[in-house]
């Protein structure tokens, strides 16, 4: 009897070790690990390409991006940070969205981001860029429950503060907390994204919404002092940003939009900082 018990304990132990080993062996490889490999299959190469697009959008998807933003400016830490529009959401698509009134697959969702948040050109569904970002989203979504939004999806919605958002007070907050990085004119610098102006997201973007922007600002800004603003301050600064000049919503004023874009591409070279290198492949470290 004792022997059986010892045996069963041993079996349990071995099973546990094997399980641990398997988890370690089959765990999702990190992007760095993938980049170090000599041979990547198509899916892995696509994941790495997707990661490169998210972190250096203008370099790797410069064909379709139209402003100074990178995906990772909002989908922070390459889409892995909760409460900053994390990208581990493959399991909730396809879903109907009020924004375009149709059922959106992950491809259409990504293309919308190019059109609005990146103020660019809608890439075709089958383009390499869209496919790569979709693969990266799948990669991040490993382990999530299909059909259920992951923890920390989107941004937190702030509770009712009882007061209306106040843009002038928001301007004060902006000058105090944000302007040091984002610039007095919201132009951004280096890796810091522009928050208004022709180089920022356009009027159709998801962040062009006071509630959502306030949630994003409160949960993720200022960097290093996240959640230090009060809810009311976050709402105020969001209202201030919402009033600033930014590219037109491509769904409205279409001829104006076309003119704006041609003006932009002729005279401003909006945001296209670096040309696409010939071989941004998996082997390129």
């Amino acid at each position: 009897m004792r022997l059986t018990s010892w045996k069963s304990k041993f079996v349990t132990f071995v099973g546990f070790v094997v399980l641990l080993g398997c988890t370690a062996a089959f765990a999702r490889p990190s992007i760095e690990e993938l980049k170090g490999r000599a041979v990547l299959d198509d899916y892995e190469a696509n994941v790495v390409f997707g990661y490169n697009i998210i972190t250096q959008t203008n370099r790797y998807a410069g064909r379709y991006a139209g402003n100074g933003l990178n995906c990772t400016n909002c989908h922070m830490q390459a889409g892995t940070r909760p409460d900053a529009f994390p990208l581990n959401v493959a399991g909730v698509y396809p879903k109907w969205r009020a924004k375009n009134g149709v059922r959106n697959g992950i491809g259409l969702r990504i293309r919308d981001c190019f059109l609005y948040s990146l103020n660019g050109i809608m890439p075709p569904e089958e383009s390499a860029e869209v496919q790569a970002v979709a693969a990266y989203i799948n990669y991040l979504s490993e382990g999530e429950v299909i059909g259920r939004p992951p923890k920390g999806a989107g941004v937190p919605s702030l509770p009712d503060t009882g007061a209306d958002p106040n843009p002038p007070r928001g301007q004060v907050v902006y000058k105090r907390e944000c302007a040091i990085c984002h610039g007095a004119e919201g132009e951004g610098q280096g890796p810091v994204p522009p928050v208004w102006g022709l180089n920022s997201y356009n009027g159709g973007a998801g962040l062009n919404n006071v509630q959502r922007l306030a949630g994003f600002v409160w949960a993720n800004m200022p960097m290093g002092k996240e959640r230090s603003l009060t809810h009311q301050e976050a709402l105020d600064v969001a209202a201030f940003l919402h009033l600033q000049h930014r590219p037109l919503d491509p769904r409205e004023g279409r001829l104006m939009k076309l003119a704006e874009r041609i003006y932009q591409s002729l005279f401003r070279k909006a945001g296209v900082s670096e040309p696409v290198t010939a071989s941004p492949g998996p082997a390129a470290k």
Binding site: I121, M122, R251, R254, L255, A278, S279
Partner: peptide, 27 residues
């Protein structure tokens, strides 16, 4: 211009990033 990118779904070429001397070493 009349129908916009959303309704017309007109595919555009996109930004052509020309380099003056695109040297490259084949992988």
């Amino acid at each position: 211009g009349l129908f916009g990118p959303v309704r017309s779904q007109l595919e555009l070429l996109g930004h052509v990033a020309l380099q003056p001397l695109p040297l490259n070493l084949p992988q």
